[in-house]
């Protein structure tokens, strides 16, 4: 009886979903029609003829997340950083991850993983530095690179981190470098405005109606889309090493973590 109910409910849900998305058009426009909002973004993402409105990036999503709603992305990055700071606060006193004798999974998995890691880094960097041209960007690239930390923890064991020179303090330093670089890009127009007396806006990418300030959209004929390339690279550092930090801390065994934490709690 239970099975019948489950089967009927799955069938009913599938049919309803199919009906809603096709006949009833619950998702709105399906097919070749483009919504007015989408048309606007497509027209403005990269448009050298509309200098005051464009983000100078053919990757419409990158144009939206780092220019049209750039401040929103900035705050998302801050929230992410706050989460990492919280993790570091909880794990205070835990400086070194690794150092035991365990060697992880079998030789076959270890050798194949070892070969995959340099390729993983190459792909992550490619996603980051093409974020202003193709789908991808700093966050996606950071998540890709963070896979390396998970591979190290699972395939080579937690003990491998200190052996290969990956340390929490280094990861935090690299993450902070990324965040400082983001801040530098954000404040550059402000500093320019203060120094020259010209009109410029925080996090400004390209020229505006009342401001001639802009980051270079092209260098030696290569489109770099103003702030977008720098924000993507900086976000790549911040996100990947933020994840590195958290994954390293989360992979620790309870007794390793408890020792420094309880030591502090007992006032020693």
């Amino acid at each position: 009886m239970r099975r019948v109910i489950v089967a009927v409910s799955i069938a009913a849900f599938t049919a309803l979903l199919a009906y809603a998305t096709t006949v009833a058009g619950a998702l709105g426009y399906l097919g070749l029609e483009t919504r007015a909002l989408a048309r606007m973004f497509l027209a403005l993402a990269y448009n050298p003829n509309l200098r005051e409105l464009t983000a100078m990036s053919p990757a419409a999503v990158a144009a939206i997340v780092w220019d049209f709603r750039g401040v929103d992305t900035l705050y998302e990055t801050v929230v992410f950083y706050m989460a990492i700071i919280s993790a570091l606060a909880i794990y205070r006193g835990v400086h070194k991850v690794g150092g035991g004798g365990s060697v992880g999974l079998s030789l076959i998995v270890r050798v194949v993983t070892k070969l995959l890691i340099p390729m993983n880094i190459a792909i992550a960097v490619s996603i980051a530095v093409h974020g202003h041209l193709t789908p991808g960007g700093g966050f996606q690239a950071g998540a890709t690179l963070a896979v390396v930390s998970v591979l190290l923890a699972v395939v080579y064991s937690v003990n491998s981190f200190s052996r290969v020179g990956v340390e929490v303090s280094k990861a935090v330093a690299l993450q902070s470098t990324g965040l400082i670089a983001i801040a530098a890009v954000v404040f550059t127009p402000l500093i320019y405005g203060v120094l020259t007396g010209a009109q410029a806006y925080l996090m400004q990418n390209y020229v505006k109606v009342d401001s001639g300030f802009h980051f270079p959209a092209e260098v030696l004929g290569q489109l770099i889309s103003g702030t977008l390339i720098w924000l993507n690279i900086a976000e790549f550092l911040a996100v990947s090493f933020g994840f590195f930090t958290v994954f390293m801390l989360l992979s620790l065994r309870e007794e390793v973590v408890k020792q420094p934490l309880l030591g502090e709690g007992h006032g020693s």
Binding site: P118, M119, A122, I123, S126, V129, L220, Q222
Partner: peptide
């Protein structure tokens, strides 16, 4: 290995990618 993977994944041989690929 890294240079080839970078160039193939990027699908581009522009000077931009050759320089970044080489440094990487």
């Amino acid at each position: 290995l890294v240079f080839v993977v970078y160039i193939v994944f990027s699908g581009s041989v522009s000077p931009y990618d050759i320089v970044i690929g080489a440094v990487l």
